[in-house]
Amino acid sequence: MADSTDITPVPFDIDESLSMMRLFDDGMAWLSNNYIELLVTIVIGTFIFFLLGAMKRYAARQVSNNEGLIGYRAIITQAIARTSKFFMFMVSAQLVVTYSNAPADIVRAVSFLFTISIVLQVAIWLRELILGFFTRKLSSDPNQSDTLQSAMSLIRVLVTCVIFAIAIIVILDNLGVDVTGLVAGLGVGGIAIGLAAQGIFSDLFSALSIIFDKPFRRGEFISYDNTTGRIEEIGLKSTRLRAVTGEEVIISNTNLLDKEITNLTQLGRRRTRYGIGVIYQTKPDDARRIPSLLKQIVEENGAKFIRSGFVGFGDSSINFELDFDIISSDYEVVYEGRHKIGLAILEKFNEEGLEFAYPTQTTFTSAPDGKMIMPYPEGGFPVHMQES
């Protein structure tokens, strides 16, 4: 008696098999009918592949030999050096299938892979170009090296996320995926994150504005509101100053840029004005000599005389003004120069017998008929004053 074995039939997709056979037959027909065009395009594609590879190797050598140099040429060279082999291969493959009358299925497959490769490669090139541009701009000021490192770390993350997110969306769109919901979701998520970290991003972009626009740099003297000080550090969120009175002042970058800032370092010179008052008993000839005396004092102390002259009659003084410039951007030099000129004016006026005025009042007494009299008898002080 023969054994009977149950054999479970294996599912077989006849349509799939026929499709594969048809693709194979089309491929063989393509090879037999277009082998000359195929050989020519393969040779050309291979040449292009090696040409792109040679360009990449040349760019990589240039980057290695010029390490540390930052310029537009170096930025472009760095981007070329990041060309991927996958992109080079797909460029060659796209050329082959385009000009060799390849079957439609092969053309679609290669075109799809070529689209992915070119989108990713463009994203890589854009990332290198943008980061290179930021590095070049930020590295132009060696005093900002600490801020540069912190800023570049954050910029690198932001640029990479944004560029490759766009690249992924483009690839999915080419696959036929509906990316409308994804774009809307990313937009809503970005708005939510922006609102949650509004203060942080505001200070960050303000720091980048300071680094790029350079209204001031570390080590320079600035003045805003009632604060004057030297910039000690420009951070991603705040700027630290050392005030002329000695204390450290910390202000957020956003608040600082909202103010009217005077960069005292960029002046190259500092102007000082002195108001000088002499007593009314000063003789007119002596008063006429005051501007020339002040000019002599300023020039003897290495400053630049601007102007000096009479400006008005005060309650207790005849008023003059002196304007002069100290040719220096260093606040300490300016401070010392004002000190020397002020003391020199005091010394010169004492030598010339010119008296500085100060608030005084003189009381005159008159008799009932209007005649001026002494406020006490000519024989001496009043009795009650003598007894006291």
Rank of each mutant, 00 (worst) to 15 (best):
L241S: 05
V159Q: 13
E248N: 10
V188N: 04
F216L: 11
G353N: 02
F134I: 12
F114N: 00
G314I: 05
L294W: 01
F349D: 03
I234Q: 08
S153I: 12
A93V: 00
Y376I: 08
P382M: 01
G229R: 11
A167Y: 15
I211Q: 15
T46F: 14
K214C: 10
T228C: 14
A104E: 03
G353E: 07
V119L: 09
G229C: 12
A29V: 01
F24L: 10
F201Y: 11
V40E: 10
L113A: 01
L129C: 14
I70K: 10
L120M: 13
G190C: 06
S139V: 00
N263R: 08
F349Y: 13
I76W: 09
G190L: 13
M372R: 11
P284C: 01
A196Y: 09
N101E: 07
I42N: 08
G194Y: 14
D225F: 09
M372I: 15
S153T: 15
F87I: 02
E352S: 01
A357Q: 13
A59C: 06
T272W: 01
R271M: 04
S100M: 00
T98C: 07
P11E: 08
K137V: 07
Q144E: 11
Y358C: 10
A207I: 03
K259P: 03
V91C: 03
F356P: 10
S317H: 05
E378C: 09
A357N: 07
I341Q: 01
Q266M: 10
L95N: 01
N253D: 09
S202I: 06
I169T: 11
V244R: 10
F205L: 12
N174K: 00
P368D: 15
F216Q: 07
D203G: 08
S316H: 15
T83Y: 01
I251N: 11
N34E: 09
Q78K: 09
F356W: 04
Q296P: 00
D286V: 06
I276D: 02
N319D: 15
L126T: 12
Y358M: 08
N255E: 12
G187S: 13
V334R: 02
I290A: 00
T282C: 02
Y72K: 10
D203T: 05
I7F: 14
